[in-house]
């Protein structure tokens, strides 16, 4: 069944009494949330077998709108909470919704170790290049020369490539997609959810009110459309001999490894100790 024929109705998965949600007009996080729920719908995971863990920030609030088991935890620690949750309840499909500041700055250490352990968790990192909720401070993923409230003359810090970090730390699956390509994003998330191991998906979202306004990136529709010209789709390297967009961000499933999943190995160890 093609995407146009999909029977997915997002309202089956939302706490409708909490709507309209708190996100600014045109914020890409909503589209990312739709893609995540769409992926879950297609995989037919029952709602009571899901657990969403989210941190602090605009992305962290998304968990509150999902009609399922949701945890809103301390800043930067959703992966730490998720690790404990997954070890205690391996039957749950644990999904972490986190932002670029939450995941890479405050919770950077947790990300590395979650990747290293390779627990069966899906981590969706919404990258909008800025700390939107607290007023637009510079984040580890802010592009160079971008203006934020803490970089009034432009950002001079080098940018963090979260996908390369996750890949190097040993994540089971690493992917990246933009919100404009919602069906593609859904497919990457689906890959992540069905992968047995830590899957890290970076979603290139947009912050229109804070980041877009300060950098004069146009209205929300323009910002969503610009995403397309800033990435290099999956498979591009194979079709063109000399890519003429070598410096653009690659999208699609970027890395995969089949290291043993931690929770299973951990359980096995416990069982062997009990028997011994």
């Amino acid at each position: 069944m093609s995407e146009v024929d999909s029977k997915f109705n997002i309202r089956d998965y939302l706490r409708e009494h909490m709507f309209p949600h708190f996100l600014c007009p045109g914020c890409g996080h909503g589209i990312a949330l739709r893609a995540l729920l769409w992926a879950i719908d297609e995989l037919e995971i029952p709602k009571d077998k899901l657990a969403f863990v989210s941190g602090i920030g605009c992305s962290g609030r998304l968990g509150a709108y999902i009609d399922s088991n949701t945890f809103h935890v301390t800043h930067g620690r959703p992966l730490a909470f998720a690790t404990g949750l997954k070890l205690a309840r391996p039957d749950l499909e644990v999904i972490v919704i986190t932002g670029d500041g939450d995941c890479l700055a405050i919770g950077g250490n947790h990300l590395i170790h979650a990747c290293r352990r390779n627990l069966n968790i899906t981590c969706m990192m919404l990258n909008n290049e800025v700390y939107g909720m607290t007023g637009g401070q510079v984040s580890p993923t802010t592009s160079s020369n971008r203006f934020t409230t803490t970089t009034p003359h432009g950002n001079y810090e080098p940018v963090f490539d979260a996908c390369k970090l996750a890949e190097a730390a040993g994540a089971g699956m690493v992917g990246r997609e933009i919100t404009l390509q919602t069906p593609a994003l859904k497919n990457v998330l689906k890959e992540g959810l069905s992968h047995n191991g830590f899957s890290f998906v970076e979603v290139m979202s947009d912050c229109t009110e804070v980041f877009g306004r300060k950098n004069e990136l146009g209205d929300s529709a323009e910002m969503v459309l610009t995403q397309k010209s800033s990435v290099r789709p999956d498979g591009y390297d194979n079709t063109v001999e000399q890519p003429f967009r070598p410096n653009f961000l690659k999208t699609g499933v970027m890395a995969r490894n089949d290291r043993p999943e931690y929770a299973a190995a951990y359980r096995q160890h416990i069982m062997s100790m009990k028997e011994g």
Binding site: N9, R11, F19, G30, I31, S220, V224
Partner: peptide, 18 residues
């Protein structure tokens, strides 16, 4: 009925019912 509006609405305000 291309459903682009439904897919890209960040506020889930547009829906196409089958």
């Amino acid at each position: 009925l291309c459903r682009i509006c439904e897919r890209l609405c960040p506020d889930f305000a547009i829906s196409l019912n089958y």
